[in-house]
Amino acid sequence: MMRQCVTAVVSRNETWTGSAASEPYECGWAGEAIVWLRCLSAKGKLAAARARVQISPDGMRWVDEGTKLKFPAKEGALTHARIAHFGNFLRVVADLPKGASAKILFTLTLKE
């Protein structure tokens, strides 16, 4: 059998401010994932913004998985992180400086 590979657009044109989180995404069938964050537009000073991957046993309670990724601070910027062994639920959270915001495209590339 060929390996399944799926692209999931979890957040499209969402405005993120302050402590932001993507919707949870269940993908336990996948053994590996690439988390992509693309900035569609930016307002304010985003240089200090940070993003990280979280995992969950049930899709409701979240802990840091340990992977951090750069926050895409300028329009058109694209950042990513490769992860594996993440269980069943994934999401990305970000902390943006006060007064700053970004429109985000959050994509998962998932593969068995």
Binding site: A8, C27, D58, G59, N88
Partner: peptide, 19 residues
């Protein structure tokens, strides 16, 4: 995009995991 569509997200393959 109309707001009603903008809220949509990707479907998932679920094994119906419960806490």
């Amino acid at each position: 995009m109309l707001p009603g569509y903008a809220q949509h997200t990707q479907p998932q393959l679920s094994n119906l995991a419960n806490w």
